[in-house]
């Protein structure tokens, strides 16, 4: 019973809220909104492009600055083993000597 009443009310509601006729300003108003949204989007795109360009330029300058101050005879131009041999460090000799020890009994405590 209540279900039927509700259905009837919904039908009446559909009739009571007629589809309004669009006013004469509907289409011009819509295009105005579209153009406004487009101009905002365009301004944002321009800003984003300039930001990306500026960031790229800063990165390029940074890379160039690093290259210019880079010393080609620096430690990074030779391998680790080459550097080890060249340095002829006393630690290396001690390690080599220790490896020649025959047993741990030979090692004298100081």
């Amino acid at each position: 019973m209540k279900d039927q009443r509700l259905d009837h009310l919904f039908r009446e509601y559909h009739e009571a809220c007629e589809s309004p006729d669009p006013s004469a300003t509907f289409m011009p108003g819509l295009w105005q909104k579209i153009e406004k949204a487009q101009s905002i989007s365009l301004a944002f795109r321009r800003w984003a492009r300039s930001f990306v360009a500026a960031a790229a330029a800063v990165s390029l300058i940074g890379v160039l600055a690093i290259r210019l101050h880079h010393d080609p005879s620096g430690p990074s131009s030779i391998s680790y083993l080459e550097a080890l041999v060249a340095s002829n460090s006393p630690d290396t000799v001690e390690l080599l000597d220790a490896s020649h020890t025959e047993s741990w009994d030979d090692v004298e405590l100081l």
Binding site: Y13, C17, E18, S19, P20, S23, F26, G29, L30, K33
Partner: peptide
Amino acid sequence: YRKRILGTIARLIARPDDVEDVGQEVFL
């Protein structure tokens, strides 16, 4: 589609004064 959409909006929001605004928002 505008008349049909405006009718649906009128029944959904039940405020005749704002129907066109919401309709324009839909088409936007």
